[in-house]
Deep mutational scan, measured.
Amino acid sequence: GIQEIVAMSPELDTYSITKRVKEVLTDNNLGQRLFGESILGLTQGSVSDLLSRPKPWHKLSLKGREPFVRMQLWLNDPHNVEKLRDMKK
């Protein structure tokens, strides 16, 4: 599951990941809330907090790293936007 992926993950640049996620969401007119609930399993508040103030990787616990790994996996998925759009319906 995701825990193994997080444990094996190389250090991620949390700042550039969140910046990229925000760009993709904005460009495709997708909400942070939808993204947070569907992709990260987080509430709106947690998501906007994460996206606006990402902590550096080395300061995060494994649990804290999980959303960033999920974001990275989502960014790597060529169908990420379509999938999210489908969830919106």
Rank of each mutant, 00 (worst) to 15 (best):
G1N: 15
G1L: 08
G1Q: 12
I2T: 07
I2C: 09
I2S: 10
I2N: 12
Q3C: 08
Q3W: 05
E4P: 05
I5M: 12
I5P: 08
I5C: 06
I5T: 13
I5R: 11
V6N: 09
A7W: 05
A7N: 12
A7V: 08
M8N: 14
M8P: 06
M8S: 14
P10L: 07
P10V: 07
P10E: 12
P10R: 08
E11C: 09
E11W: 12
E11D: 14
L12N: 03
L12I: 12
L12C: 03
L12G: 02
D13R: 00
D13V: 00
D13F: 01
T14D: 01
T14L: 00
Y15E: 09
Y15F: 15
Y15K: 13
Y15Q: 09
S16T: 13
S16E: 14
S16C: 14
S16H: 09
I17N: 11
T18C: 09
T18W: 03
T18M: 02
K19R: 12
K19D: 05
R20M: 08
R20W: 00
R20I: 04
V21E: 03
K22L: 09
K22R: 09
K22S: 10
K22N: 14
E23W: 04
E23K: 15
E23C: 06
L25N: 00
L25P: 00
L25E: 04
T26M: 10
T26F: 10
T26D: 15
T26W: 09
D27M: 13
N29D: 10
N29L: 10
N29P: 04
N29G: 13
N29K: 14
N29I: 03
L30E: 02
L30Q: 02
L30M: 07
G31I: 03
G31R: 04
G31M: 04
G31N: 13
G31W: 01
Q32I: 15
Q32T: 15
Q32N: 10
Q32Y: 14
R33H: 12
R33S: 13
R33L: 10
R33E: 10
L34M: 11
L34G: 06
L34T: 09
F35E: 00
F35P: 00
F35H: 00
G36V: 07
G36I: 12
G36C: 14
G36L: 11
G36P: 00
E37H: 03
S38K: 15
I39G: 02
L40S: 03
L40M: 06
L40G: 00
L40A: 02
L40Q: 02
G41F: 07
L42I: 14
L42V: 14
L42N: 06
L42S: 06
T43G: 12
T43P: 15
Q44S: 14
G45V: 09
G45A: 14
G45D: 15
S46V: 15
S46K: 14
S46D: 15
S46G: 11
V47Q: 04
V47G: 04
V47D: 05
V47P: 08
V47L: 14
S48K: 13
S48Y: 07
D49P: 09
D49K: 07
D49H: 10
D49I: 06
L50P: 00
L51V: 03
L51D: 03
L51T: 01
S52D: 15
S52R: 09
S52C: 10
S52N: 15
R53M: 08
R53W: 06
P54C: 04
P54Q: 04
P54R: 02
K55T: 12
P56Q: 14
P56H: 15
P56T: 03
P56M: 05
W57Q: 01
W57T: 03
H58R: 08
H58I: 09
K59G: 10
K59W: 07
L60E: 03
L60R: 02
L60M: 03
S61P: 06
S61F: 00
S61V: 02
S61W: 03
L62R: 10
L62C: 07
L62W: 08
L62Y: 06
L62H: 08
K63I: 15
K63T: 09
R65F: 01
R65L: 00
R65I: 01
E66D: 06
P67M: 10
P67T: 09
P67R: 05
F68H: 01
V69I: 15
V69H: 05
V69N: 03
V69R: 05
V69D: 04
R70F: 00
R70C: 05
R70W: 02
R70P: 03
M71T: 01
M71N: 02
M71Q: 01
M71C: 07
Q72P: 05
Q72M: 15
Q72G: 04
L73N: 10
L73F: 12
L73H: 13
L73Y: 09
W74H: 00
W74K: 01
W74Q: 01
W74C: 00
L75P: 02
N76M: 13
N76P: 03
N76D: 15
D77F: 03
D77E: 08
P78C: 10
P78S: 08
H79P: 00
N80D: 00
E82I: 11
K83T: 07
L84I: 08
L84F: 05
L84M: 08
L84E: 01
R85Q: 12
R85N: 15
R85C: 10
D86S: 13
D86E: 13
D86L: 12
M87H: 11
M87T: 10
M87N: 11
K88M: 06
K88L: 05
K88H: 08
K89N: 08
